[in-house]
Design a protein around this nucleic acid. Sequence first.
DNA 1: GTTCGAGTCGTACC
DNA 2: ACGGGTACGACTCGAAC
Length: 817
Amino acid sequence: MKIKFIPIDYDYFDCEGRNWVRIVGRMENGKKALIVDSCDAYFWVILKDGLSDKKVDKVCERIEKISVEGKVRIGKVIRTEIASKRFLGKDVRAVKVYVNNYKDAHDIASQIDYDEVYKRREYDLSFVSRYIIDKGVKPLVWCDVEGEMISGDDFGGIGRVDVDVCLKAEKMEESKKQIEFKPRILAYDIETDEFEIGKGEIVMISLVGEDCKKVLTWKNGNKNYIKNYSDEGEMLGGFVEEVKKYDPDILIGYFSDGFDLPYLRARAEKNKLKLNLGVDDSQPVFSRGRMMSGKIKGIVHVDLFRFIRTAYSQYLQSESLSLNDVANELLGEKKVEWKHKHSSKIKKDEWNQYFEYNLKDSEITYRLMEKLLPDLLEFTRIIQEPLFNISRDSISAQVENYIIHHINEYDEIIEKRPYNNEIGVRRAEEKYEGAFVFQPVPGLYDHVVFFDFTSMYGSVIVSFNLSKSTLVEKEKNSFGIDIGKKVYFSKKPGFFSDMIGEMITKRKQVKGEYNKNPDPILRARSNAFKLLVNAAYGYQGFFGARYYCREAAASTAAFARKEIKNVIDMIEKKGYKVVYGDTDSICFERDNRSKKEVLNLLKEINEKLPGIMELDLEGFFKRGIWVSRRNGDVGAKKKYALIGEDGRVKIRGFETVRRDWCGLAREMQNKVLGLVLNEGNEKKAVDYVRGIINKLKKREIEIDKLIIKTQLKRPVEDYKSINPHVSVAKKMIEKGMLVNVGMLIEYYIAGDDKKRSLVRDRARMVDDSKEGNADYDVQYYLRNQILPAVENIFEIFNVDVNSLLDGERQKGLGEFS
DNA sequence: GTTCGAGTCGTACC
DNA sequence: ACGGGTACGACTCGAAC
């Protein structure tokens, strides 16, 4: 039988001591298919240089005799092969050791500790990765499959699955013709009586897909999308039934790894039911790790929250990654308003609102997925790991997987993952010097220009060939750099910088295509490359990386510092005054010179930059403001505001953009910055601030503008210093409220500070049940929130902010001198 | 009991 | 434990008086 097939979900199983891969995907006609296939399981033994052929043969003979006895099977070496390969850029001779089961590779490898052996590698790859690499059956890439139908009890019952076609593959190859693929997506969300997993009952479950809008419940409701059940257990059965009927490729939730799926599983158990969502009727499986991941066989369970956090959060400006904040920013949608309470406390006429709320959550999740799907698909295609992993992997894992799936072209044996003791050593290493930040002089600057380097660290890695495999002792064909000690890198290109270079080239190309044809897929592809390139630097400095290289990371930062300083010099030599710069950006005054002249300068600089490094025009700005540091009189770094020629204000680092300042201070500072930048003077801003101060003094400010939000980053008992938010969190726990690590603690400061008591003792949680909450400490808000937010801005205009307190305008000394 | 520098903590920038 | 370093600034802690 021959089919055209797109692989979506992969897993493996053992049958008769051998490893098999099971792939679930779709056929061209939209039907679901399951393919069973296999590949060799093996690892590499790299030999020391200069061994005689005879000695090598002897090593192979010894290896072939190895067997390890496990609980369920005996691990054996099937055969060996001698090959010429490369390892970290050097030619090596290596033995390819084939084993009957990949899970025994590690144990077998550890027995091969002979004198002739240099290293043992690739015993730590997952079988699915091995399969994808060796067979070239890539996720979400159409392939032509030839195979035999299997059914019933084949492979220990693997054929007993709920798919349309089930094949054992004989031949699989990438299709010449790739057609568009639209996965079938279903979003879900549950509502429960308690927040703790499995503690209370699940009262409703919403499902949203293409032409699907449902709320399953055993409570009474009369909306047309509601499906009624008699009790929780029946509803859970109905959920499984509805999911299977919809037949999704991808089931998505928001924070569903940590809440919805484990909750469903726990309640099914309580009801003595099976949550048999898998194509083989299996239940979801939760992998242990720092974070639980819920896996369903044959359906890719995606927790959108996790993908957004790793791949998207850096582009978001919302203050939290809650569904509401993210949906609001990306879709302009908000959740239905609903205050959580136990179902026994919900009044009859409130239930419909609750159902609406539940349905809306799934709708938002579904629409978010529509928006992010191109990114997920492109990440998957580029990195070539299964979607399940792509949606959950950390950024370092994404970089590493890209390397693993593209290294074959270099004939390289893959470096191993570090052991715990190596991680310990790496983490104990001293920090190295990072980026250069220009010391600004406080002031208001007219007509400023920003230049920035495109993908600076990536382009430095490529231009100077900085990686583990190119780090060498001082030699003829190398060059050195000082990172506290002198280190050298070969001029001969290595695979790491080669790969990064290729990604930069591809990105440029895709971006060019996108500009001609703004297709979301192209945009997603360009973004994926950009993200991977930018993460390559962090990857080399990350202690958990296979290709960890502190010297390369430190050298990347060192070369970057050198280059940006060079460019600053070049700009200053042309007579411009540089105002600021951070890592890869430079800001300078244009004075009365034309834009054309500035662009000529840019061109001139670019001709002198090394390798593939490139400087770009970020923009021309009408005005910019830099303020002084609160402690000391020099200019503050990483804090500035700009106004573009279109009137748009761009604020960096100021309290306005910090979520741990109260709304009033932030809004006011934002307004002040806008006024000052627009007007070029402080007059309107001063009047405005005076108004705010008076309102606050008269307690006319609503409490919700005075709430301070701070994240609880660890369990309360782990804190050495009890700051206000920790103190509030403790009070919340005492009250029996649910306090999770990672949540935002909201509080305000009450009472009066006559007694100089600690702030934390006056920090109060926001109590909705109380009317007014008008007991806030006016003095605290004036001295610790309002004045600090504008003090350094007005200082530039010689306005002493204390003079605003009593409503009288005073001028600083500077005005009279 | 007050004062002040050091240390802790969270958040932002790139 | 699951990218890096640089930087600001509020607040607490605790030694010194």
